[in-house]
C-alpha cells in the first residue's frame, strides 16, 4: 500500500512489474530499475519509489537517496520536448550562456523548468561530448550543434509548429 500523499493517482504500477521481475533480485540493480521506471513514466512518481523500495527490500529513504543523487532522475513530469543544454567547457567558451538566454527569452523557462503548455522542459546537463560542435543541445534524442540564437529560435519554432 502506498503510504504517501499520492500526487497522481493515475500511475499504473503494473507497468513496472516486468522491470521488477527482471531486476529486483539482482543485487546492485537499483539504479537500473529506476532508469527503467523513468523510461516508463517519464519521471519517478512517489508511488513508484515506494513500489521499487518494497520490491527491492530497500527503505524508501535509501531509494530516494539514490534517486536524488543522480541528475538523470526527475521527480516531476517533463515536457514533450526535453531540451538538454550542454554545459561543457567548450560550449561555455563558445557561448552556451547566450543559448540559455535565448531559450529563456523564447520559452520563458530556466534550468529545470517546464513551459506552461507542457511542451518544453529545459535541463542544463553535463558535457554531451560534442565539443567540436559547441555550443550544443540535445532535444529528446537528437543533437543540435553549432548553435546561434537565430538557429535556436528556428529549432524551437519548428518544434512548436509540429505540435
Amino acid at each position: 500500500m502506498c503510504k504517501c500523499n499520492c500526487s497522481d493517482s493515475n500511475i499504473d504500477l503494473n507497468l513496472l512489474k516486468p522491470v521488477l521481475d527482471k531486476y529486483s533480485n539482482v543485487k546492485g540493480s537499483l539504479i537500473t530499475i529506476l532508469q527503467n521506471a523513468q523510461e516508463i513514466y517519464g519521471y519517478l512518481p512517489t508511488e513508484v519509489i515506494y513500489e521499487v523500495a518494497s520490491a527491492t527490500g530497500n527503505t524508501p529513504a535509501k531509494v530516494m537517496g539514490v534517486a536524488t543523487f543522480y541528475t538523470q532522475f526527475r521527480f516531476k513530469p517533463v515536457g514533450k520536448y526535453l531540451i538538454m543544454l550542454c554545459q561543457g567547457t567548450a560550449c561555455h567558451v563558445n557561448g552556451s550562456e547566450m543559448i540559455a538566454q535565448t531559450i529563456n527569452e523564447e520559452l520563458g523557462i530556466s534550468d529545470g523548468e517546464t513551459t506552461d503548455d507542457g511542451l518544453f522542459t529545459l535541463s542544463c546537463v553535463a558535457c554531451l561530448g560534442c565539443c567540436s560542435l559547441s555550443p550544443v543541445m540535445m532535444i529528446n534524442d537528437e543533437t543540435y550543434g553549432s548553435l546561434t540564437p537565430k538557429k535556436v529560435r528556428e529549432i524551437i519554432a519548428e518544434l512548436k509548429s509540429r505540435s
Partner: peptide, 11 residues
C-alpha cells in the same frame, strides 16, 4: 564515465 566537460575521447 567520461565526465570532464570538454573531453570526448572515450566516447
Amino acid at each position: 564515465d567520461e565526465g570532464d566537460p570538454g573531453a570526448f575521447m572515450d566516447r
